[in-house]
Design a binder for these strands. Structure first.
Lengths: 354, 354
DNA sequence: ATTAGCACTTTCGATGCAAGAGTGCTAATC
DNA sequence: GATTAGCACTCTTGCATCGAAAGTGCTAAT
């Protein structure tokens, strides 16, 4: 049959695209008669039926039952996304919303990402997600201690470009001298060290350095360990979960429940995403069962990596029914990603962020 | 009719309790015949029917349709909760889970609360929520600045017992001298000051103090403002949203969707909760339309305030269908609250938290 | 005051039926 | 050889009907 290396002649492509478009719009199987309305497809319903039969044979279409119209299969969606989709350009208004939203919050990575997912969810009306990938080798670059009162101090750690704090409380008085010496010891011994490299001998050495304040070392070092460990675990957040319910595709409550449960477990998804996010900079699309997680059979995941100074620092994306508005979602995700990247990598101006 | 200041004789109480219990367990309307199985109610179905008719007249029961059994009305649930509920005691196992969970994380308020809601949700199988109320008058007690590199420093603020940080970036070099002077100026002029009390004259005075570094003042003060403002807004978090779907009471998707949307909007709920949480230390129960928010007609909200040093610092609770297992939920919430309170108010031992 | 008995009401599931939608195939047409 | 008109066939969907089941309210007897 027809031309094209993928075995689809022009008319088949036209028909497939029309079917996917229509199905995305209505959510119902689309029949041959309906397609005759499409002016680009200039032939009778019988011809269309023949083509559709062939498309089904090729695996791009499916038939819920004998006498319903056709529905795109996952392969059909895949083909659509890869080859048939003409890019959508956000409207002026949308771009404006987006840029303004990001610009307002010129803050640290966390806030920017949060803003981005909120925008993503709002603009597309789907559930959005943000990912902070696992960090393979996290170390503290700098320690500082701030004394609050006789029994309390705050340990301040600079990790990457993020600052983390942790309380130190002690029943004995924490003197100014103690904090200074503790900070010195920490900076000397624990900077550039990963959690797994903190050994008992190292701790004992620090205790020797601290003289009379040695009782502070053990709990503080334990805290440091905790923070580092906590930090290198990835994080996955969702925004607009309620929007899932707006789509009849999720009327199957059992499935929806599983999906939501997935959101709370997160770990599986995190694993997958962290893996993928590292490699590819382009927008990534996982349709239905292409998602390794079984629960997501009817869902599509679209996301894109965000880099800062060339290193992946996160990803944002959208999750929704396989029957989703791909054009808009893809456009939104890519625009948002480029927007965030721009803000993150902007050369230092006079600005503050935290 | 019978004795008792509330107009319910013993048998009526017994019947009402049995009906609520049965309905909670099965979710179906309960009929007179079923109740005869209850050994405590020693009379015929006809008698029970008469009592039920009276209970309905009094507003404690409802009839979905002529020939269904009875279902508790909101007033019925209310009476049940207030007067008929015998307290449930958590099992050894449950208490153990709970204590261990809390003890593990001897961290700062945020983490404890997070742990508590996770536990609450897991133990009860309902959706749990945690509330941080609005703070009426937030001020910074202490400023510190930590220099990171030539163009970056971190502003560290002690607010209440919480430490917040914010980046300062500048295209011009940030010298050591600049950070010291800036910290001094901040500590002198902005400690104990609320966001609304930061005036332009105040800022100008600070700029004068800073001499050649005056360009740093405006952006930094703006940051301080932002942090304070952010901080005094309350916060509401949910855990286990998927569990809502486990209950057939939420099969009405439209309603569920609204409820979830509410979770994302949060503000209304926050308003209500913040208000209520301040006043009462006992566990608070809002049944159905007692919740001012319309969407929650079929839901019950059970929560309790957590205090630290006598001041309300938050609340944790459960949200679920009006037909919920009150005994267990109430027991869990109260236990959890007392556990958290205990951890928070424990006298200083040698421990760290952050 | 309680209870047995009975008529009445309403839901629920199964069944059957007609309408509608869409296909696949065959035969005619360009 | 590709296209199309026409028609029989299949499958869903909505609707109406029917009988069983469940539960009540009322009356009359205890």
């Amino acid at each position: 049959m027809g031309a094209g290396s993928n075995g689809l002649n022009e008319r088949k492509k036209l028909i497939l695209k029309a079917i996917v478009d229509a199905h995305i719009a209505n959510g119902e199987p689309v029949g041959s008669k309906f397609l005759t309305q499409n002016k680009q497809i200039a032939c009778s319903s019988a011809t269309i039926r023949n083509e559709m039969a062939e498309l089904e044979e090729m695996g791009y279409l499916e038939q819920p039952h004998t006498s319903a119209g056709r529905v795109p299969s996952e392969a059909g969606y895949r083909f659509y996304v890869d080859q048939l989709l003409d890019l959508y350009h956000l409207t002026e208004q949308e771009i404006k919303t987006l840029r303004e939203g990001l610009r307002q919050k010129q803050q640290e990575l966390d806030s920017i990402m949060q803003t981005a997912v909120t925008l993503a969810s709002r603009l597309t009306n789907y559930t959005a997600l943000s990912l902070k990938p696992r960090q393979p080798r996290v170390t503290v670059q700098r320690f500082e201690i701030m004394r609050i009162d006789d029994h309390t101090a705050v340990l301040i750690m600079l990790i990457g470009s993020i600052v983390k704090t942790k309380y130190i409380r002690s029943s004995s008085t924490i003197s100014m001298d103690a904090t200074v010496r503790l900070a010195a010891a920490l900076n000397l011994k624990l900077t550039g060290i990963t959690a797994s490299e903190i050994t008992l001998p190292l701790m004992m050495e620090m205790e020797r350095m601290m003289g009379g304040y040695d009782y502070l070392v053990a709990p503080v070092v334990k805290s440091v360990c905790e923070v580092i460990s906590l930090f290198d675990g990835g994080e996955l957040r969702f925004e607009g979960i309620d929007r899932l319910l707006a789509y009849p595709d999720y009327y199957d409550l059992g499935r929806l429940r599983e999906l939501l449960a997935l959101f709370e477990k997160k770990d599986d998804l995190l694993e997958v995403l962290s893996e993928e996010a590292q490699h590819d900079d382009r927008v990534q699309i996982y349709i239905g069962s292409e998602n390794l997680v079984k629960v997501m059979d009817n869902s599509t995941l679209i996301f894109q990596t965000i880099r800062q100074n060339g290193k992946p620092v996160g990803a944002i994306g959208i999750i929704g029914p396989t029957r989703m508005d791909y054009r808009k979602v893809i456009a939104t995700v890519t625009s948002l990603t480029s927007g965030v990247t721009e803000v993150l990598n902007r050369p230092h101006g006079d600005r503050n962020s935290g």
